[in-house]
Every structure is written in structure tokens, then in C-alpha cells.
């Protein structure tokens, strides 16, 4: 509906605009199209959720946007500027990613200090000392964690470090790839609260990938459902709460998230 699109444009500028994104893996006969014609746009300060099962291509979309997968085509524009295949240094400063597994995404032999200060050095920031301390306070850890190693931290604490690392370069957009799926529900609540607080404070734009519909309903305003590399439905969170999605597959996902139902 063009009318609703117009009202949206009046509200806020588009922070991330993806049009007809295709991602390929393999070559020749083996060439596989993992993401098919995906188009989404997220306004600045918005929170967009991508849900779907494993293998549906939801993480691959994030990886293509962040530059971790080179074999894609289509247009990706950040703050109105289309991005090229070769990423500029300044691009890293606008967009950062938090990965799924906090046990794998931190270098085991780098101290937290090194993990957090490395991006600052690469981007020639000043006041590195203060920034690292402040970042640790911001994610609720405190400066005493600065010289520890990842193995001395719990899963939730590691994910806080990963979030701090993503925030070091003061990005506008955070890509969150299942940030809580490896954590207990009590820790998940802490991390989700932290993410909401940071978004409010810094006016960030979030793209959250998850398979947990309750998490996506809690965090996001708009939700795209992916299946087999395609977006089957984009809906706002109210539609999802009222369990009125149009697509069969979305209904199935919603039903399953309600818990177990014996065979009919």
C-alpha cells in the first residue's frame, strides 16, 4: 500500500534499505541461492525482527549486510548511501554485529581490554582508556572486568562483552544474530533489557534475527518471516500478537511457540 509507505517516510529516515538481495554459495552446478530477492527497509531508530527456522537464510541476510559473505547481489543502502562490495572503514563505524554464540565470538586468548580496544585503535579513536572503562560500565559489567579473559566469564557476561565490543565504534545500526539463544531465560531477560535500554539511550536501529517468536514480539515493531530463503510475510507486532498472520507458515510457527499440542 503506497499510502502507508508515505506516512512511514514522513516519520523517520530509512536507516537500512535492502532491495532484492540474493546470496549465493558454491559455484557452477553447485551454486545455491540461499537468500532469494529479500527486500526490507528499516527506519532509523526502528527495531526489525527476522524470524524463521534454521536454514531459512535469516542469518545469511545479516552476514551479507555486514560484509561477511561476499557473494551477493542486489542493493543495500545504509542511511541512504548504497554500499559497495568493498567496505569502507567508515562503514564499520555505522554498522556492527553481535553474534549468536558468546562462547565462540570472543577470542579466547585476548583479554577483554584487548577485545574492546582493538577496534578503537584501528579506527584511530582517542581516549581509548576511558572509552573501554565506560563501555564496560554501560553494559553493566564494571571496570573490574577489564583485564579478565573470556574463560573467566559466564555466558551472559560474555554476551555483554560482545555487545560492548559492537558499541565501541558508536554505530547507528546493530545487527543482532540470535543474541540470547545460547543463554538461560533468566540471563536472556537481563540481556534483552540491556539491549532495550541501549537502544533507547543511543537511538540505535536494531535488526534482530531469532527463532523465538516471544523474543521478537518483545523487542521488535516489525517482523519478517523467512522460509527457504524467501520472506513469506512482513507484519507488524500487533498482527502477530493477535495471531492474525496471513501466511500458513507463520501460523504454524506461532502455534508451535504456544507449547506442545497433542496430535489432533
Amino acid at each position: 500500500m503506497p499510502s502507508s509507505d508515505n506516512t512511514k517516510l514522513n516519520q523517520a529516515p530509512i536507516a537500512l534499505d535492502i532491495q532484492n538481495l540474493n546470496v549465493y554459495f558454491g559455484e557452477g552446478h553447485e551454486k545455491f541461492r540461499a537468500v532469494k530477492d529479500v527486500s526490507i527497509s528499516v527506519e532509523a531508530g526502528g527495531s526489525f525482527g527476522l524470524v524463521g527456522e534454521s536454514g531459512s537464510g535469516k542469518s545469511t541476510v545479516l552476514r551479507a549486510v555486514s560484509g561477511l559473505v561476499p557473494s551477493w547481489d542486489g542493493t543495500v543502502a545504509v542511511n541512504g548511501e548504497p554500499i559497495s562490495k568493498k567496505r569502507e572503514m567508515s562503514y564499520c563505524r555505522t554498522i556492527q554485529m553481535v553474534f549468536q554464540d558468546p562462547y565462540a565470538s570472543l577470542h579466547p586468548r585476548h583479554s577483554i581490554d584487548r577485545t574492546l580496544s582493538e577496534p578503537l585503535r584501528l579506527h584511530k579513536f582517542d581516549n581509548i582508556d576511558d572509552r573501554v572503562n565506560q563501555a564496560l560500565v554501560d553494559v553493566g559489567l564494571g571496570a573490574s572486568f577489564r583485564f579478565r579473559y573470556p574463560h573467566q566469564l559466564s555466558g551472559g557476561q560474555r554476551q555483554r562483552v560482545a555487545i560492548a565490543r559492537a558499541l565501541m565504534l558508536e554505530p547507528d545500526i546493530l545487527l543482532l544474530d540470535e543474541p540470547t539463544s545460547a543463554l538461560d531465560v533468566s540471563v536472556q531477560a537481563e540481556i534483552l533489557n540491556l539491549l532495550s535500554d541501549i537502544r533507547k539511550k543511543r537511538q540505535l536501529t536494531y535488526i534482530l534475527v531469532t527463532h523465538d517468536l516471544a523474543v521478537v514480539a518483545h523487542m521488535c515493531d516489525e517482523i519478517a518471516v523467512m522460509s527457504h530463503g524467501e520472506i513469506v510475510e512482513i507484519m507488524d507486532v500487533e498482527t502477530m500478537r493477535e495471531s492474525k498472520p496471513e501466511h500458513e507458515y507463520t501460523r504454524e510457527l506461532l502455534e508451535a511457540s504456544e507449547g506442545y499440542q497433542p496430535e489432533a
Binding site: S186, L192, A214, L254, S257
Partner: peptide, 18 residues
Amino acid sequence: LLNALPDIHKPKDQLSVL
């Protein structure tokens, strides 16, 4: 534990922490 879970039908600003 129950309160820490996000709920699709009952949105809340902050999840309660255990």
C-alpha cells in the same frame, strides 16, 4: 523464571530479572 520469559500476548517494557 516464569516472569523472566517474554510473552507474545502480554507486552511489557522491561522483563523482570531474577
